[in-house]
Each structure stands twice: as structure tokens, then as C-alpha cells.
Design a protein around this nucleic acid. Structure first.
Lengths: 350, 350
DNA sequence: TCACCTCCTGCAAACGTTTGCAGCAGAACT
DNA sequence: AGTTCTGCTGCAAACGTTTGCAGGAGGTGA
């Protein structure tokens, strides 16, 4: 039913190869012929069948985008930017969701491989070695994970975490908590590493809590642990967890930032809308999406070009962080009464 | 480089047609042969090339999903559910973002048409007639818009809007505002229609404000207008706008729900996390995604089957709605001093 | 022994493109 | 006038599959 190249050829009285060239190598065909062919094509509503083209050229003009969880608000801006960037170059984009499951991830890469020119692997949960293996079957660009031999786009979360810790230390906090992200997350490791050295440098102490699922429930679930640990400020793996934590703290009677300061990472749209407005490390998700697409489509045919992009992060100070405890005051922190008894003890120690 | 059907055929000593049948019609091939072929395929890492298959069968095992704005938090759960449902049936899913632009929408449908077995058109901004036209080029399922001749999935927002208005009227509100959505949105029209009859039935008055862009900025921008209009409660086209409006009201010194009640629509994750927690009409986005995929893949080849699904909505009462103004009190509403002078006048009139 | 049937497999055309090669006409040299 | 070159077009093979048709092997019944 849809018009094929043959219909256009018949209609315009030329051979199909001429029609083909009109679209894929216009300079090879006589201007008059070209306009005639284009007119017929337009009139018949002809669009080249990309699958058929791909069969012979090997280029599908599709790319795959695999994320851990579409519904995690960090990803939509990235997906949106990647889609837009790709479409600008006449590419279409398959989106798939691994549900944080490494096995699904692997299967998705394999399933998509034949149908795309490359795959954007965002926040993968697979092992490095498996990723390297897969990258031999299909061009891969890894986002949010640094892998030596492969093209990657990462956020400079190390810098962000350092800034966050320095901010907190500057406010007088000496005991800082870190709500870790999911197991297998490179970003989480990186944050931890950087936060550790930054706290040491600031002569403060770091308490790591986790790993945890990277959503608001994961954050909320740590509230009690946080209170009991006696920290006065917390850096969370992402905004969602920070927000969940604030909720959880609130439920235990603690107030943010009066009793505990909280800083998130990502600067999702949401973080500006909650109360208190979240202090957070802004990561340029949209830029990462664009960069990853560029990187994937850049190397013409010279596979095994390994670019690495590290995107700047920045600390956005809002209302969820405040001064640390007055070192001279030993007043009972009110809210602790609402928490478990040992939380009182632990907090009083400090 | 990747293994083809020919490699498998050579390796297992059969003709390619036998290999083909092993995958697409296993009952036609001798069990022994079959296992041998499967073994070779497995060993070579062979996966049938879907594009080549599509060329001859006409089935691509891909579906397109076009939304107005990926970053609008209403969509990710829908996309996620659709993707999951599709993949369960071995389908892959193209995601595209029209940026609320009808022209882009049309072009996307045409561009994707050859590469998919059907397209999910979510919250389209195109005209009905154009949609009907396009549906003759490629199977379409329309989400969030009722169109007679086509398969559609809609939310019963009429019911939701009615519940919301009844809730507000029950709280004593007599002057209710409606923050309309974008031009071209069927849902917005539907809400308006239903809210109008519901207010009339409740012996209240409805003030429509809009159309507006369907995001928090669109909502925030109406704050002043809302204050000036003298309404004491507002129903917004979606949660994002409701949240923006609350922000805007707050910036003008008005408090929610003390001074003005606000109810949203959609029940996005965010609405539970802001303060005050948003009263809202929950729309089953994930269920809609699944239903739409089912509908698209249901009709085997009998195009022009037109199913219609209308998904139940429900009112979730949280903290952004409160009692209407005390009819006997004429106290100055305090916050109005912070707003423009004429806002005072207008509000005082009420 | 023959006819017929059932199972299985191979053959080859087809799907809608791209592209190297060859051919043709006319222009531009020598 | 002959040669070469340039610009354009057609021919046909190829990409990786599916599928209608035909044919061979073996079994069954008469």
C-alpha cells in the first residue's frame, strides 16, 4: 500500500536507481530529472524504507538508549535531550528500561544490537568486563560510568561531592553522613571516594549508610539510621533519596535544616519545588544526553575511538542546609524524644 | 561480522530455509535437525535480523510512542509501562518527543510509519482530521483523546473533575477557578466541560483561566490572575501546574489551603512530596500505557477495529484543600497586601 | 508391486533498497 | 575527424530474511 521506490520510478519514467540516487546522492543526477522525481515522490508520499536501506548500507539510523529506570526523574531530561539531538541528525531512538537489573540490560543490548548503529548505556549495573564484551558486538557509549577502553560520558560528581562536603564543613558540620546509592553504581563509588577525602581534609568524619535503592523510599528508610548515627548533615546519592530522607526525618520529628542539613545530587526539577528547597549538586543530565549521542555518531566508521567527557557539576545552595550545631550548647534536641531512645543517647554523645 | 542465517546453515549442514523455519515455524522441522541448528545458532551468537525479516513479512516488531514532552512527569510512568508491556511481547519501542508541536507530531508519525507496526499517539496536539488521515498510513492508538473512528485510551477526567468540584463545593467553596491546559488538548476541554456542569449543579461559579502551557511555569504565571479573580479554590489541568500555582500564590503572600484551595490532576509522584501535599485526581498513567499497547497489538490484521477504553480516575484528598471562606467573616485576608493593589480590591469585593 | 500419504528439506523468488560497472550522448580537446 | 573526457542513466547483484512449491524418503494399505 505505501509507495515504494518502484512506484516513483514508474511515475517519473526513470529507473529505480535514479530515484535512489535522487535521495542518497543528489549531485549525481541531472537537476531536471531530480526535480521531476522529487515531485512524483512528494505526490505519492514516498519515503525511503529505512529497513531496506539498512540491509544494504549497514546503517540503520537508529540508536538504542538503555536506562535503569525511566521513571526516575533523573532520566527523562537526559532521554529528551538525547532524542532531540538524535532526531536533528535524522536518527530515531529506541528506549528501553532495565529495571535496575543487569541481566535484562545484557539482553536488551543483544536484542537491540542488529537494529541500531549504537547504544547509549546509561548508569549501567553490569560488570565492566561484560560491557567491554558487548561493545565488540555493537558500538557502545557508556553514560555515568568511566571505563578505560570505551567512549564514556560522566558527571564530575567527585568535584560535586567535594563542594558539598566543603559547604557543609564551612557551616560547622563535623560529622557527616553519606547515603550511598545502589550496588554496582560507579557514581555511588565515586561520590563515596571523593566525600571521604573531602571530609578528611576538612577534619570531619564521614559515616556511610547503604547501599540503598535510588529512590525516595530508599532515602526515607535510612532516616532512623541517620538519626541514630549522630551525624548533623547528610549527602545523599541523589535528590530523590534526599527528599525521601527529609520526609523520613520529618516523620521522626527532626527538622531540616534546623536539626539536620541535607544535600542531594542531580538537581532534578522537583528539588526546587519541595520544602525546604533542596541544596544539591547540579548534574547536567541533558548535556550528557547530547554529548553521548554526539560521541556515538561522531566516529564515522573508525570504531574503537575512545573519547571521554567529564561534565562539570555545580553546587546549588538552597534551603535544606544550615549551620552546624553550636559547639557550646548541649541543649536537648527536642525532636529526639520522638525517635528511638538510643537515638537520644547517640545524639547527646556528640 | 555478526552471524547471519547463512553462517548457521553452513555450520549445521542444512539449507538456510531450514534454519529460518527453526525459528519461525519450529513444528515444520525435524526435532533432531532443530536441536542441531539451535546449538549452532547459540554457539555463533546468531539472532535473526529483524529488519530483513520485516522486509518480507511486513511486521517489524517495533512500535512508536509519541508524547508531547518526555520531561513532563506524567509521561515517564506511561512510557515505562508501555515499554515493559511491549517488550513482554518481544516488541521494541521508539520514543519521540513532539515538544507540544503539532507539526513535529505529524512529521514523526510519517517518519516512524515504515519502521513500526503501529504508533501510540499520546496527548496529541494535532487536529482530529489529521489524525484520522494519518491513521490510514499506519495503525494508530490515541491516548488521552477520544476520536470516534479510532482505537483510543482515555482517562475518565470528567468524573475526576466532577469529584474534585464536589469536594471543593462540599468544603464551602462557591467561586472556583479552573486553570486550563494547552490549546488543542482534548483532556483540557473535557475537564472544562465537566467542571462547568459540576459547578452549576453545586450552585457555584466557575472562572476559567487559560489556556496555559502544561508545566509549573504555566501554573505559576496564573497566580496573580487567580488572586485577582477572587476565587477561593482552584482546579488545575495537571499537578505540575497546581504545584507551580501554589508556588506563585505563596510568592504573593497567599497560603494554601488557608487562603486558597488547590487541586491538581494526575497524581504524579511529586504531588505527595511537596508541601502541602497535593489533593489531586489520580489518573492511571501506567495502566493507560499497557492498555494502549494491548490495543495496538490486539487486532491481528483486522485494521479498523476501534476499541475504546476509559480508565477510572479517583480523587486523592491530601492537604492542599481546606474549608471555604467563612460566609460571615469579612476580615482582611492579610496576604493581599503583598499582592498588587487591585488584587486587594478584587478580593475584597468577594 | 503400486499408489498414496506424511514428514521433512531444498530451491528460488521476493521484500525495498544501494552501488559498482558499463554504456551513451555530447562537449572539448588535439 | 578522431580521441578523450564529463555527466548522466540503466543494469544487475547484493543485503538477510521468509515462504510457496516441488521433490525425496519412508511408511501404509490394497
Amino acid at each position: 500500500m505505501p509507495a515504494t521506490i518502484r512506484d516513483v520510478a514508474r511515475e517519473s519514467g526513470v529507473h529505480i536507481s535514479t530515484v535512489s540516487r535522487t535521495f542518497s546522492a543528489p549531485h549525481l543526477v541531472n537537476p531536471e530529472t531530480r526535480t521531476r522525481v522529487l515531485a512524483c515522490a512528494e505526490q505519492l508520499g514516498y519515503r525511503p524504507n529505512r529497513a531496506a536501506r539498512a540491509l544494504i548500507t549497514g546503517r540503520t539510523y537508529n540508536v538504542g538508549l538503555i536506562v535503569a529506570d525511566i521513571a526516575n526523574p533523573f532520566f527523562p531530561p537526559l532521554i529528551k535531550a538525547a532524542e532531540s539531538q538524535a532526531r536533528q541528525r535524522d536518527y530515531h531512538i529506541f528506549v528501553a528500561d532495565s529495571n535496575e537489573d543487569p541481566a535484562v540490560e545484557e539482553d536488551l543490548v543483544r536484542a537491540l544490537a542488529k537494529q541500531v548503529d549504537g547504544i547509549l548505556l546509561c548508569s549501567p549495573r553490569m560488570s565492566n568486563s561484560l560491557i567491554e564484551l558487548l561493545s565488540r558486538e555493537v558500538p557502545l557509549v557508556v553514560v555515568n560510568r568511566a571505563i578505560a577502553g570505551l567512549p564514556t560520558v560522566v558527571m564530575d560528581v567527585a568535584q560535586g561531592a567535594r563542594l558539598a562536603v566543603e559547604h557543609l564543613a564551612g557551616l560547622g558540620h563535623r560529622s557527616i553522613g553519606l547515603i550511598a546509592g545502589p550496588r554496582g553504581s560507579w557514581t555511588s563509588k565515586e561520590i563515596r571516594r571523593s566525600a571521604a577525602t573531602a571530609t578528611r581534609a576538612a577534619d570531619a568524619e564521614l559515616t556511610v549508610i547503604g547501599p540503598n535503592p535510588p529512590n525516595e523510599h530508599g532515602g526515607a528508610a535510612t532516616a532512623e539510621h541517620v538519626l541514630r548515627s549522630g551525624v548533623t548533615a547528610v549527602l545523599a546519592y541523589n535528590d530523590l533519596m534526599a527528599i525521601g530522607l527529609i520526609e523520613g526525618l520529618h516523620a521522626h520529628g527532626a527538622r531540616v535544616p534546623r536539626d539536620i542539613s541535607v544535600v542531594g545530587i542531580d538537581d532534578i526539577a522537583l528539588s526546587r519545588l519541595i520544602h525546604p528547597k533542596l541544596t544539591t549538586v547540579a548534574t547536567p543530565a541533558a548535556a550528557a544526553g547530547r554529548a553521548a549521542v554526539d560521541m556515538l555518531l561522531a566516529h564515522g566508521d573508525d570504531r574503537r575511538t575512545t573519547a571521554h567527557a567529564s561534565l562539570q557539576t555545580e553546587l546549588v545552595i538552597r534551603d535544606s542546609t544550615g549551620p552546624g550545631p553550636d559547639p557550646h550548647s548541649h541543649a536537648d534536641p527536642g525532636y529526639a524524644a520522638a525517635a528511638a531512645p538510643d537515638a537520644v543517647a547517640s545524639y547527646a554523645k556528640e
